Amino acid sequence: MSPSDLPLQRANADLAFAPQLGPEAMAAVAASGFRSVINNRPDGEGGPGQPSSESVQAAAEAAGLQYAHLPVLGSMQTPEQARAMAELLASMPKPILAFCRSGARSARLCALASEFTPR
């Protein structure tokens, strides 16, 4: 996969969203200039064909990316999860790429996270 093949939606210079990414995409993510990846999709949500967080993490780290797994349900994001996302967004190297099944959940979580100031 090349950087131009990544299905990105940019929020700003420091943050973008994407639908499900697998291990094979992590080199392209790094080549696109991202320094961190946040996976908001619970393992197994999409069935056995969905890559595990562990496999994506290994590929992300091999590509030189910092990785975090903050799984949230598509139907609901809690204040605790929004606070945890705010802390990740404040502490991880930028730019950051957050992904889930479609990218919408990650975008909603980031919007909720903006209400919290990390400690």
Rank of each mutant, 00 (worst) to 15 (best):
M85T: 06
V56I: 13
E54Q: 12
E115S: 04
M1S: 10
F17D: 08
D5Y: 00
F116R: 09
M76S: 10
A25S: 15
S52E: 08
P79K: 02
R105L: 12
I96R: 06
F34W: 06
L70P: 02
S4R: 01
N40M: 11
P19H: 13
A84F: 04
A111V: 10
G47S: 04
R10M: 09
S2I: 05
E80S: 09
A25P: 01
L88R: 15
S2V: 02
A104I: 06
N12L: 05
L65A: 08
Q50P: 00
A59M: 09
E45N: 09
I38T: 09
Q9N: 11
A31Y: 04
S106C: 13
Q57C: 05
E80Y: 06
L15Y: 09
Q9K: 15
R35S: 05
A111R: 12
L8W: 02
P79S: 04
A18D: 02
A86D: 01
G49E: 05
D14L: 11
S75K: 11
M76W: 15
L21A: 06
N40W: 13
D5C: 00
A30D: 04
F34L: 03
D43A: 10
A18H: 07
E80Q: 14
L15I: 07
P7D: 00
N39L: 08
A82Y: 00
F99G: 01
D14E: 15
M76H: 13
E80M: 10
P51W: 06
M85V: 08
A111M: 11
A68V: 10
F99R: 08
A62R: 12
P19I: 11
D14G: 05
K94H: 07
R101S: 05
Q77T: 15
A63I: 02
L89M: 14
V56D: 00
V72S: 10
P42E: 14
A86Y: 00
A27N: 08
A98S: 15
M26R: 07
L70R: 06
Q77M: 14
A84C: 04
A16F: 03
P23D: 14
C100E: 09
